[in-house]
Simulated scan of single mutants.
Amino acid sequence: MLEIKDLYKKQDYILLKNVNLNVAKGESVSIECSDEISKLLINLIVGRELPERGQINIDGKNNVDYAKKHFNNIGIVLKDDGLYERLTVKQYLKSYSQIIMKNTNYLEVMMKMSLMDIGDVSIKKLNQYQRRRVSFAREYLKQPKFLILQEPILNMDKESIRIILENIQELCDNGCTVLSTSISFKDIMLLSKDCYILDEYGIKKAQNEPDILEEDAKNVEEEMPVYKIEKIPAKIDERILLFDPIEIDYVESEQGVSNLSIRGEKFPCGLSLTELESRLIHLGFFRCHRSYLVNLQRIREVVTWTRNSFSLSLNDKVNSSIPLSKSRVTELKEIFKI
């Protein structure tokens, strides 16, 4: 559905280069990038900006031509979306459904987005979570073939995250292609299984750590865990700190660097996530995701967003939420005997 090939664009201090991306029909991908890069990328995709080199195709057609002829097939929800403040939620969505002349029932969409109870509330009185759901509902009315989301779940409450993730999944099941961007690495992990990092050096897969292979698991000796004393090193400026494993809430691998999360602060560690796993597995740590290692004692709740999307709520200082791979759910349940 979306094909980006050898894209290059320089605008002021913002640089996009070596961008190659293919997203098939019905797939969802998410990209971690800055606000500035996100805005430029979106403008390039919908034809508001032209690349200096490379090409962008949507559904096999040049993106500019596609946007001109089939703009109603493209949905866009921006971080700072403009809404008609004086209208109520119901008035706004009803008016929009009449403008786009699609067969989608706006009341059904309001129910999907949990907006019925605030249908008669003016938009200017809505909070951030509600406004984001209204924006999403507006684009859902189009039943788009291609949907672009900028910061769809950043700083959102738990219920709004659940609603948005469920409806992204439903749109994908119906053949819609979804592209999400966010400044949050954790958010992109939650938004889709195919995650990328985009910066001035280009685009790359976010998951750098490989999943554990079945044959590797078979080679693990079946014996009782032996408690070992370990100190985990981290470096801050010229200081090397040694942490007790019990202090670590979780470990996050981002762009090849393992960061220890301790009481809401991040400390870079020179060891890879795989090396840390081998040191910490007998001390109560679990590889919940290819990019995350979690202290089992910190897990407060296993959250099911959709049939393919899970996360762990932690009881650390900042009540963190980290991804849980679908392939690891059964193993985690066995550990907790649930």
Score class of each variant (00 low, 15 high):
Arg133Glu: 11
Asn315Ile: 06
Gln169Glu: 15
Glu108Tyr: 11
Asp59Gln: 12
Gln150Arg: 05
Gly75Thr: 04
Val178Asp: 08
Lys61Ser: 10
Leu147His: 10
Ala137Ser: 07
Ile299Lys: 03
Glu85Pro: 00
Ser160His: 01
Leu21Gly: 05
Leu191Gln: 00
Leu50Pro: 00
Asn219Leu: 15
Met1Thr: 12
Cys269Val: 09
Thr304Met: 10
Asn62Ser: 02
Cys33Asn: 02
Ser291Gln: 09
Asn57Asp: 11
Leu312Ser: 14
Lys333Thr: 01
Thr330Ala: 14
Gln150Tyr: 05
Leu93Thr: 13
Gly60Glu: 08
Leu296Tyr: 08
Ile322Cys: 05
Glu301Arg: 13
Val329Cys: 04
Ile123Trp: 04
Leu276Ile: 07
Leu83Thr: 01
Leu283Trp: 02
Val64Trp: 03
Arg133Asp: 10
Asn72Thr: 15
Phe243Ala: 05
Ser30Gln: 02
Ile100Arg: 00
Glu222Trp: 14
Ser313Arg: 13
Lys25Asp: 06
Ile338Met: 08
Asn62Thr: 03
Pro210Thr: 05
Val226Cys: 04
Ser160Thr: 14
Asn155Ile: 02
Leu78Trp: 00
Ile168Tyr: 01
Met116Trp: 10
Thr306Ile: 08
Val220Gln: 08
Leu260Ile: 03
Phe136Val: 05
Ser291Ile: 01
Ile118Pro: 06
Val121Trp: 02
Ile163Val: 07
Glu49Ile: 01
Pro152Thr: 08
Tyr129Arg: 04
Cys172Arg: 01
Asn155Trp: 03
Tyr140Met: 11
Cys195Ser: 12
Ala67Ser: 15
